[in-house]
């Protein structure tokens, strides 16, 4: 019995350095800024229209425009996830002031994309008088499929794996959303102009990664000096 505990203890000590792989919070005083722009290379496809094939009294009878690929007038792509996957140290990962919400309204997810810190409880609300189910698409570690009938206005889910989780509704096949679960605060979503900004980056060399559900991912190397602003630009297009 004693021997077994000893072995386990030794194992634990051996595995301790592995903790170094995870993110470490430090004070950042001379951090720089990464300003990025993601544009569509060439002519972007026309916005994808979604015909409302059911529950028109709740979902609205008019065709919807898919939020999955939104390209602005300047060809900037909205809701691209930018991150620094290699970052080991930096400012602390904060907790949101109030619980983040994913609302189902008019048979659409609001917001379509959001970033939440790992180990955060997401409030999933149903503002529609109709059944929705919220289901992870295959490919993420996080996996669930919860029914949310109209009489269940609020569900919650604790996101425990840092990753990008895509969810869908099977009752209304056009509904899709993205939840970015971060384990460090150095990530951002592009705005309607395709711009993003990552601030307080400790000086050093980094890989900047951009990811889009329809356009795949790209990386670029940048070097950030103290209090410096670094520009980085990406061109993405459908594979």
């Amino acid at each position: 019995m004693m021997t077994r505990w000893l072995i386990l203890l030794l194992l634990g000590i051996v595995m301790l350095p592995m903790q170094g792989l995870s993110y470490e919070a430090i004070t950042v005083s001379d951090g720089g800024t990464i300003v990025g722009e993601v544009k569509y290379a060439g002519d972007p496809p026309a916005p994808e229209k979604i015909d409302v094939t059911k529950d028109a009294n709740i979902c609205g009878a008019d065709p919807k425009v898919s939020p999955a690929l939104v390209v602005g007038a300047n060809k900037g792509i909205k809701d691209v996830v930018a991150s620094l996957p290699s970052i080991q140290k930096g400012k602390a990962l904060g907790k949101p002031d109030k619980p983040p919400v994913l609302d189902q309204k008019g048979c659409e997810y609001h917001p379509y994309a959001q970033i939440i810190p790992v180990n955060t409880t997401l409030e999933i609300t149903n503002s529609d008088d109709v059944l929705h189910n919220i289901k992870t698409k295959g490919g993420s570690k996080t996996s669930f499929n919860m029914a949310q009938p109209k009489f269940k206005r609020k569900l919650t889910y604790d996101f425990k794996n840092p990753e990008i989780v895509q969810v869908e509704c099977n009752v209304h096949g056009w509904m899709n959303a993205i939840i970015v679960v971060e384990d460090n605060p150095y990530d951002a979503l592009t705005d309607a102009n395709g711009s993003f900004k990552i601030t307080d980056v400790p000086p050093g060399k980094y890989t900047v990664k951009v990811w889009h559900s329809k356009l795949g991912e790209q990386t670029k190397e940048v070097t950030v000096g103290p209090k410096e602003e670094v520009q980085v630009a990406f061109d993405m297009k459908a594979p």
Binding site: D55, L131, P149, K150, F151, N170, V171, H172, G173
Partner: peptide, 27 residues
């Protein structure tokens, strides 16, 4: 009726609900 099982399984339960054409599995 209230939990809208019929959206997929149909009013008479024969799996012919209005969501049928959209249904796909994880693959």
């Amino acid at each position: 009726r209230d939990a809208e099982c019929w959206q997929c399984h149909g009013d008479a339960g024969r799996g012919d609900g209005p969501s049928l054409p959209d249904l796909k599995d994880d693959w």
